[in-house]
Design a protein around this nucleic acid. Structure first.
Lengths: 195, 195, 195, 195
DNA sequence: CATGAATGAGCGTTCATTCAT
DNA sequence: GATGAATGAACGCTCATTCAT
């Protein structure tokens, strides 16, 4: 698995395009190879098997996705600001790459349990970012200290995920990013002390 | 399709068990037939094709699920109480039938887009229940009137769904129902006026 | 096999209709039963199996067909006249029952070798009628005595069969019966002495 | 579909053998693949589906068959001589390849209407050869000018076809080729002027 | 490194036939 | 005799993966 070779990225990008345009179940290895401009067999020089393409795809794309969010939230001062930034960047990035949005929100969920477990591994890093913001909010006595942190994380991630999925399924007919504020507002109200 | 015949239910129950135990992609028609104690061909006396088994499964099980929630929420007075009941019953019912929980939260999501569209049809009825509670809360001036109803619905459904999925993936090692109150609390705080 | 019962004929007539309208491969036993107005199982009280329906169908219908031709040719004096009558009645009868024409010329030929062998048994009686006319023609010194009788029979039957099949495949857009004279003429010229 | 590859021919030849020996309805794709010495899947690299094997088989084999007849008849001077050559070559070629004879005369006729339509397309070329000979015979005033050309063609093709089918069904117990003269004689007498 | 022809396991569905009622 | 629900064997086709070149 030589991850620095251009063909590695070529194949992953081809996979995103093919899956977004044809759907998970119509995305045969041969179709991805064709789109990438390589022979079928070449795929197996860079990936262990088909599942490995998808896992790698998710790792690469979500890696960037999460890193961007980590950077942007770190540039913010308070937990509340960080949370807003997280929501904004989450929506912005998926809005900017609608192929990726389709693949992560709809198509990759059709994969089997095994693949989804590996996907969850990747997501843990994102959930950790959320956890840290929650923790920070509690430490700074901005968020209530009687909340169940796991539940809060589930609420935040569940809400964002459902919002994006709905937006993708509605074929992106409205502006997702401009809803970041409202989503943030609802969530924060649930977490902060009433003053 | 004789839906009142015992074999119809037999096959659906067999499908739930087989899918929960083997996973969506390892649930061949022949395996379901064997579990149901009928011949392969018998399946096709009650269902148009394999997909029809899954759609029917979802319609039957989620039909009951939603009806129970409708009944229980209607017996409550305020929007806040109704929302609590909805969350409790949502968690209770999936806790009571963990095979069904696995199937709806993990396995059926691996189905193709077509099937998922039909599943969404069924879910619409549940989303309508949520919508009505939100509406009622606003009418009664308990919920803030500047909220985006669609976003609220996405938050509620997304949070519950994520909470259940996490619980299923953790192999039900903790008590989901006892979290209903905390989840309810977080959500309601996001919706009500600060007093 | 109770051949005198009305249901026996009912089923055969249903089979002709179903096969003519749906084609051999879309003519399931259940479809024939429905058309006949009986239960699937009832078929098996009157016929050993599906093939037996088709053999019986052919025996009944071709039995009548051949008997008619035998009668009509016997009412003629010379071999030449008899041959004309045979051709006319062959064309007339299939023109009169186009369902039967479709079934015998196109659909039943899709059956397997075994069934076709049984069909040939039935046809032998027809070929015998032809043979007798040829024999008579030679005896009466109307037909040449150096002809190979088997070949003549093949020419006669092959020509009529091909003519009818063409007519059926052209969806009966022209009048088959009015060609009887021309066909007869060509054949007879091949058989008689040049004077 | 790479028609110049040896495997393409291998599979077609295997199909002829398998169908001739097992009958149309017992000729599964897997059996043809085994006979051809390739994997089942390989079949589908060279043919669109099972029907395509059969259509291609007919096109290839009958293509050669007809081409040979075209060449040989063209080397003859008169319509009468051409017709004799046509009959001789028709009988010779099917005598030389009795597997092919069984397949074309008996087994392929069991195919469905769709396939038979495609087969008829191929046969049209043969019928055209016959038509041209008839036309030429009339032009040269050897054949009578009051004959119905379509009927003549049906007589010629029907007679040859019936003769070969009889020979195949009698399991080739006699010499078909030596009958060519007699068949030719009968047909020509029906077409020429009596002098 | 790269190719792409070849592989072969795996599965949804049909339908002639049976048999308990 | 009549029913029709139930049976289960049979098969064409796909596609991830391999490997000789």
């Amino acid at each position: 698995m030589k991850k620095n070779k251009p063909k590695y990225t070529q194949i992953i990008d081809a996979a995103v395009k093919v899956i977004a345009e044809n759907g998970y179940h119509s995305s045969q290895v041969s179709k991805i190879a064709k789109q990438a401009g390589v022979a079928d067999g070449t795929i197996y020089l860079y990936f262990k098997n088909k599942e490995d393409i998808l896992v790698s795809l998710f790792q690469q794309k979500m890696g960037n996705f999460i890193q961007k969010i980590e950077e942007e939230t770190n540039s913010q001062q308070t937990a509340v600001e960080k949370l807003l930034k997280l929501i904004e960047k989450h929506f912005e990035q998926l809005t900017a790459d609608h192929h990726l949005a389709i693949v992560t929100q709809l198509e990759l969920r059709q994969s089997n349990k095994e693949l989804r477990l590996k996907i969850n591994e990747v997501l843990k890093r994102y959930l950790t970012v959320i956890d840290q913001i929650i923790e920070e909010g509690i430490q700074d006595e901005i968020f209530r200290n009687d909340i169940d942190k796991r539940l809060v994380r589930q609420m935040i991630f569940g809400t964002l995920d459902e919002a994006v999925t709905n937006w993708v399924m509605k074929e992106q007919h409205y502006d997702l990013v401009e809803q970041a504020g409202a989503v943030h507002d609802m969530i924060v109200r649930g977490l902060t002390y009433r003053t």
